[in-house]
């Protein structure tokens, strides 16, 4: 057993040393021209029409800051109108956590939605809820099964 292990290590060392001696394979002479031809065929899109990950780095940073600023501003300006928007808990939450106003607004919205859900559930009969959940489960399973079948078919045809 030890001999086998020793031999295996020797073989690994030999293979490693031998393979390290191989030079890089020469690319076909046509590769560079193929690449340039493929690039020439690409539609030239301005940076803002490309996926965000392909934007120039400074534009990614700028857009991120801008987006964060917009979200922050929305939260900031919505808060004074919390009462009008029926965000009952927003002010109370704010009192407990001064300085995190957007978070307070979000908590208020969630709280309102939760209250509305409880109210709806309280006024609907139990069997209606059960039937609704059953229909949802059925639709979910159908989508899952249909998706799996489509994937199998497409994978089989490739």
């Amino acid at each position: 057993m030890n001999d086998d292990r020793h031999n295996e290590e020797k073989l690994a060392a030999w293979a490693g040393q031998a393979l390290k001696q191989l030079p890089a394979r020469r690319a076909p002479a046509t590769l560079a021209s193929r690449v340039l031809a493929a690039l020439a065929k690409q539609p030239v899109l301005p940076w803002y029409r490309r996926p965000w990950l392909n934007w120039p780095r400074h534009m990614q940073l700028l857009s991120f800051v801008l987006f964060a600023g917009i979200i922050g501003a929305i939260g900031w300006f919505l808060l004074p109108h919390a009462d009008a928007l029926n965000l009952a808990n927003a002010k109370q939450t704010l009192a407990q956590s001064e300085g995190v106003r957007p978070v307070s607004v979000a908590m208020g919205v969630l709280s309102t939605l939760g209250n509305a859900l409880v109210l709806v559930l309280g006024n609907v009969k139990g069997w209606v809820i059960a039937a609704g959940l059953g229909v949802l489960a059925f639709l979910y399973c159908s989508c899952l099964g249909l998706g799996t079948a489509c994937w199998r078919l497409s994978a089989g045809n490739r």
């Binding site: 690319a27 076909p28 590769l31």
Partner: peptide, 24 residues
Amino acid sequence: YQDMVFSTAIRLLGNDTEAEDVAQ
């Protein structure tokens, strides 16, 4: 860099045509 990229591709794929496609 084309030799380095092509080398990686040809050694993994074992096929010149596919390696060239991937390198592209």
